[in-house]
Design a protein around this nucleic acid. Sequence first.
RNA 1: GGGGAGAUUCCCGAGUGGCCAAAGGGGACAGACUGUAAAUCUGUUGGCGUAGUCCUUCGGAGGUUCGAAUCCUCCUCUCCCCA
Length: 415
Amino acid sequence: MTRKGPALHHFDIGPEEQLEALRRGAIDIVREEELLEKLLRSHRGGRPLRVKLGLDPTAPDIHIGNAIPIQKLRKFQELGHQAILIIGDYTAMVGDPAGVDKTRPMLTREAVMANARTYLEQVGKILDMERTEILYNSRWFEKMGFSEIIRLASRITVARMLERDDFSLRYKEGIPISLHEFLYPLMQGYDSVMVRSDVELGGTDQLFSLLVGRDLQRDFGQEPQVALTTPLLEGIDGQRKMSKSLGNYIGITEEPEQVFGKAMSIQDGLMRKYFLLTTDLPDERIDELLSDNVHPKEAKMELAKALVARYWGREAAEGAAREFDKVFREHELPEHIAEVVVPRKEVKDGKIWLVRLLVLGGFAQTNSEARRLIAQGGVNINKQTLTDPNLDWEVSPGAVIQVGRRRFARVTVGE
RNA sequence: GGGGAGAUUCCCGAGUGGCCAAAGGGGACAGACUGUAAAUCUGUUGGCGUAGUCCUUCGGAGGUUCGAAUCCUCCUCUCCCCA
């Protein structure tokens, strides 16, 4: 279960104190004075701030990296402010060029809508959806005429666009930039105009777009929003930004054991960042865990537990930790093992070609890949390593096959 | 519109007629060591029922040749310079 924070009303907490809470883990606040001013006014007038976060449903899953600004939005909610979630169904079709070195593929409307549905489900693990305003930006973009697009496009210069690192880098390297990518920040900025946001959240790579929002709001006679950015999180490979397509992510709907295991595999050097951005442990506790008094592995266990607890609750976290110890310290079998059902027709004379079994079990894409795994000693059944790729294995239902260090399955025979 | 350069396997990148399923690096995977960390070392990295004088892959379509990633023609796309 998701922990819902205490039902705080923003009158309960003073503006300075709110600012303090909001600052945690933030990179830029443009501008902080303005934010304080807005908080003061809101507090005085009893009117919540309108805090906007745009999500482009470009992938079906939300991971703990893109959950960071969502968590920040939740913080605003806890402080009594109005959360506005923009589902960028229109912008997703363009594809955000921020921080990428090539044009994103344009998504079809169907794919975007399917993703949007799973997003909303998943966001519900973080936000109080009852108090969240949800808007699809196709609502205003769909009916926008070309003349309006031209007017919007006139608000920004090519030079300013090319100032951006991602664009200038691509330009210098001779990597194509399509014109429509220039439109992206304008669209995101226009969203802010449409919802009259007081604050917009986003990752640091969003700063430019958030600032364009300020400019556009000014042009439309509105008070500019405050831009608040959060850090980008490295993926579990420790190299690149966490992303679904790189496969280095921890999804917020992944099973507790999965989340725990992935968290345990991050580099030690990343721990502080993960603690700070993906858990809500107090700073003092984090310092304590990362001091010399605590073995790094113990600290990481705490990190993994805190992370699981955030999305699955305390109990699931404890369970995942026990399971982890069992499998990786005591080398016992995990509690829940997926089943591989071998169709009866694949079994001949009570035997099945081991390579075939691996492919059927999804451990390998092709026979060749399965052969390699076997030859390299990466496959065992009931803890007995099998290294002959030509082996016809005598099927014994209930046997546990292990591939690599972390993939297990129990073999059964069925249709 | 004119001129030039280019497109290679997951990515970068070498390869200019046979020795090419294609160097090297990165990534990934497996093994050793470990804390499912880092570092290091080793191996693997198109497919095929167990293997070959086999099949598919060097942007696409044709062609030359006994033989093409490599040569020719056309096409598509990208970058650069000029307008």
